[in-house]
Computed example of a mutant assay.
Amino acid sequence: MSGICHGRVVAVTGAGRGLGRAHALAFAAEGARVVVNDLGVGLDGTPDPASPAAQVAAEIRAAGGDAVAHGADIATGDGAASLVTTALETYGRLDTLVNNAGFLRDRMLVNLDQDDWDAVLRVHLTGHFLPLRHAAAHWRAETRAGRTPHARVVNTSSGAGLLGSVGQGNYSAAKAGIVALTLVAAAELARYGVQVNAVAPAARTRMTERVFARAMAAPGTGFDAMAPGNVSPLVVWLGSADSAGVTGRVFETEAGRITVMEGWRPGPTEDSGARRTPAEAGATVRALLTEALTPGAVYGAR
């Protein structure tokens, strides 16, 4: 088996279903050896008796690839550390980390309790930070030992994190945090040979099946625009050595579309050189807003 990831070892979190499974299969098809992580929980994060990680690993092996299942909770220090350890003990290296695991507990803000807030931020945001931290520590040690890697991290944000989404304050906050984490990690880890990027995908998974209930097919082609596998080619490329020089970027992707997202940067500004009164500050803001771009609409807003 050969491909752009031939010889690389890739760990994918939340890889038992949906986007994660599609990524794991796509990496394997391009020659990667894959650590398939999945805790095996329901859509809301509660225990599910059917753990899918082993099934995906077996699917990869049946197709001629190489994979190992990992069932620990990557939102814990021990679980995240064991993800890296599994890659090293099984394959002797780790080249790419794809942070993908997550779930939903949607509520309007006035109905969102702290448990649902904490649970979503724990899995999405902490579940990105801890595997990234442990992988980065390994790559730093490799660099200090004179073996600078060509390492890659692909994080998973969302349009909800870029624009906001009504009824998803916890999810939107976590996904926005992932973007900021991506930018910081890209800046801090470059010296260790690590590139860090994020994708904001749109695809039909357990988390979005109500939104994308009907397949969007191009007339006469049978192309299922919302299939999770449409997102994976970009993720695989970002996780490969071929993506050299691309870091600190966020890409929105769905169907056949890839968009480079351009985030916060200074817009119209005015410096008075002195302290303003509140009324003066307000007048300045209103004048500046007439020159500023209109923000994108929050998903679900009317």
Rank of each mutant, 00 (worst) to 15 (best):
L181V: 05
F223R: 12
Q195C: 13
A274T: 14
A202Q: 13
L189T: 09
A297T: 07
R257L: 14
N170M: 03
W237T: 01
V260H: 15
A24Q: 09
V236D: 01
R276I: 02
E30M: 11
S2R: 13
D44A: 13
M1P: 04
L39E: 03
T143A: 15
A274F: 03
V56Y: 02
A227V: 08
S272F: 02
V34N: 02
A62R: 02
V250S: 08
G267L: 00
R206Y: 05
A141Y: 10
V179Y: 12
W139G: 06
M1A: 09
D95C: 04
A32Y: 05
E252C: 12
A198M: 00
V260R: 15
G282E: 02
S165A: 14
L39W: 02
D106M: 08
R249D: 04
Q168C: 05
N155L: 04
A26V: 01
V110W: 12
A274I: 07
S165F: 10
T277M: 12
N111S: 13
H134G: 02
A137W: 08
A160C: 10
L234C: 05
R147A: 14
H23D: 15
V153W: 11
G16A: 04
E30N: 13
D73N: 09
G77N: 11
G193A: 09
A185N: 01
A101L: 05
L25K: 12
V12P: 03
P131S: 00
V235M: 00
Q195F: 14
A227G: 08
L25P: 08
P233W: 06
V194R: 01
G31C: 03
A136K: 06
K175V: 12
G222Y: 03
R206V: 13
V123F: 08
G263K: 09
D242C: 02
T253K: 12
N99L: 03
D44I: 11
D78I: 06
L25G: 09
I258L: 15
V34F: 05
A241P: 15
R302I: 11
V12H: 07
N155M: 01
A186R: 08
L181F: 13
A67G: 03
R33I: 04
A160T: 11
R144Q: 15
H138C: 11
E262G: 11
V246I: 14
V184G: 12
G64M: 01
E280Y: 00
G273V: 00
A53S: 04
A54I: 03
L88N: 02
G161F: 14
L234Y: 12
H134K: 09
G177S: 03
D66E: 15
A215N: 15
M226E: 13
N100Y: 10
V199N: 11
A151H: 12
T269K: 08
A186V: 07
V110L: 14
L112D: 06
L19C: 05
H150M: 13
S51M: 10
I178A: 04
T143P: 08
D48G: 04
V236I: 12
G248V: 10
T90V: 06
G16P: 10
Q168Y: 06
L109F: 15
L121G: 00
G45I: 07
A218P: 07
D106H: 07
A287C: 05
I74F: 06
H70Y: 06
D118L: 15
G42C: 04
T277V: 07
G273I: 00
R17A: 07
A15F: 11
F129V: 02
G79C: 00
W139P: 10
A75V: 02
T13S: 09
Q114A: 14
H70W: 01
R275H: 13
T90F: 08
V34A: 07
